[in-house]
């Protein structure tokens, strides 16, 4: 099934994307409303939550260029030393820009 990218076609595609994204935004909470939250489920949810972050970042580091790797490394070091997110993020982005400028 294909949609031609006329103006109505594009509108339809945007609506389809919106609905699919809405299903992902609502779906997890909707399903959880049928689950009784035991301590075990709560523990699952909590470790899952911080694992989401790791699961986004690690493949990003492995699949990225030297700049991406530098950004993540510098962010990690600054964050662990200063414990302040904004300087850590800024340093990371700067590292990416610098590495990409040099290489």
């Amino acid at each position: 099934m294909t949609i031609e990218t006329t103006s109505t076609g594009i509108l339809l595609l945007i609506l389809i994307m919106t609905l699919v994204t809405l299903v992902t935004r609502f779906g997890g909470v909707f399903i959880m409303s049928f689950v009784r939250i035991s301590p075990r489920i709560e523990s699952f949810i909590n470790t899952m939550a911080s694992s989401v972050l790791i699961a986004i970042i690690v493949p990003m580091a492995f699949g990225g260029d030297a700049g991406a790797l530098a950004a993540l490394l510098v962010t990690a070091v600054v964050m662990l030393v200063l414990k302040k997110p904004l300087p850590a993020i800024a340093a990371g982005i700067l590292a990416a820009a610098l590495v990409r400028y040099v290489f």
Binding site: T21, M32, S33, I45
Partner: peptide, 14 residues
């Protein structure tokens, strides 16, 4: 790509 929202939403359910 957006399926992570499912888990993110679920984690806020409490």
């Amino acid at each position: 790509i957006n399926s992570r929202h499912l888990l993110m939403g679920a984690s806020l359910y409490p």
